[in-house]
């Protein structure tokens, strides 16, 4: 499957790479949906024998293929929120040199990266590869509520109801982009939503 090329942007916006197998005795791979394809792309029996895969399918049908790789540990979670306690537990036990691979949607990679950073792994040491939906995890700068999987600009905050425009300014700590009221200077004048990259 072809990968989406994000247009060039500002310096706070994350840039994603392409996963590659790195040497190490422990490997943690966290993926959602089409992120499974990136794991399938680098999997070898040797690597999988030392790998813990945490996968959130979100309706994509890759679970059997991943399981067939025979990873040392495999977990399928129904949602990211349901999986995060397990991710924390795994990171807490991590030894020096653990290789972390994150792939799938920006929201998944951002949140999992945040957990790894809090466990003491520098964000620059974590591999990422974007796959699947280009939807964004957005924070409303006004009410601070986070809306997951935002596909359009503008969008309505799922917490306070304000109409927000989608900025490229991104916070690693929040794992979110910033949403700012679009009609503050002209209340009610909200353009029709369109896809973020349209």
């Amino acid at each position: 499957m072809s990968k989406f090329e994000f247009p060039p942007s500002i310096k706070s916006r994350p840039v994603y790479g392409t996963l590659e197998a790195r040497p190490g005795k422990g490997h943690l791979m966290i993926a959602d949906a089409e992120g499974a394809e990136a794991i399938l792309g680098i999997a070898t029996p040797d690597l999988m024998a030392k790998t813990h895969i945490i996968y959130i399918p979100r309706g994509a049908g890759f679970t059997d293929q991943l399981r067939a790789l025979n990873p040392a540990q495999f977990y399928e979670g129904p949602t990211y929120a349901a999986s995060v306690q397990r991710i924390r537990r795994v990171l807490q036990d991590a030894h020096m040199g653990l290789q972390v691979y994150l792939t799938g949607t920006e929201g998944l990679m951002g949140q999992a990266q945040n957990e790894a950073m809090q466990a003491g792994i520098p964000h620059t040491a974590i591999q990422t590869e974007h796959r699947g939906s280009v939807a964004r995890r957005m924070q409303c700068v006004h009410c601070k509520g986070i809306t997951e999987d935002v596909e359009t600009d503008p969008f309505q905050c799922s917490h306070c109801g304000l109409n927000l425009f989608v900025r490229d300014h991104y916070s690693r700590r929040l794992a979110a982009y910033q949403g700012v009221c679009i009609d503050a200077e002209d209340p009610g004048n909200v353009p029709a939503p369109k896809g973020i990259y349209e």
Binding site: V141, H142, Q178, C181, A184, E185, D186, P187
Partner: peptide, 12 residues
């Protein structure tokens, strides 16, 4: 920015 939805209108 937190309060922009309140003060932005003052520009008009």
């Amino acid at each position: 920015p937190e309060n922009y939805h309140k003060w932005g209108i003052q520009k008009t």
